[in-house]
Structure formats: structure tokens, C-alpha cells
Computed example of a mutant assay.
Amino acid sequence: MTAPDIGDVIFEMTRTGAYLKCSAIHVATGLEVSAMGPALQPEALKRVALAKLKRALERS
């Protein structure tokens, strides 16, 4: 996926029972963040991980 303000981002989803872990990796820097939430809402979890990645990029 390409985010207009930060560039290319890769998402990795891992399900464990009723929970889903979403990792977001910034292609240009290799910075990775993750978020966990309900497995029934993967798109919402992607939005959370992307927001977390944007905050992490601002700090670095």
C-alpha cells in the first residue's frame, strides 16, 4: 500500500484465536510497528497500525 504522506507500507496480519496482530513496515526505512485487536476488524487494525507508524516516523 502507498500512503500519500509517507510512501510505501507493507502490512502483515497474524491471527491468534480471536485476536489479530497487524505489523506495518515502512519500506524506505525498515521501521516496523504493530497493533493488536479483534480479528473481526482487520481494516480498522490497519488504520491503527498506520497511524502508529506515522507517529514513529515523526519521532525518528
Rank of each mutant, 00 (worst) to 15 (best):
L40M: 13
A39L: 07
L50D: 04
K21N: 15
P4I: 11
P38S: 07
I6K: 09
A18L: 14
R55D: 11
S34F: 07
M36N: 14
P38F: 03
G30P: 04
A28Q: 10
L50H: 08
P38C: 03
R47I: 14
A44E: 13
L45A: 05
A28G: 11
S34Y: 06
V48Y: 05
S23E: 13
E32S: 07
P4L: 09
A24P: 14
S23W: 13
S23R: 15
G17Y: 04
F11K: 02
R47E: 14
M36K: 12
K52D: 05
L57T: 00
L53V: 00
H26G: 01
D8M: 10
L31T: 03
S23Y: 13
A39K: 05
T14K: 06
K52Q: 05
A18S: 15
K54H: 08
A18N: 15
H26K: 03
G17S: 07
S23I: 09
L53R: 00
L53N: 01
I6D: 07
A51T: 11
V9S: 03
S60W: 02
E43Y: 09
I6H: 09
G37L: 00
M13Q: 09
L57W: 02
T29Y: 01
R55I: 11
R59Y: 07
Q41W: 09
V27K: 07
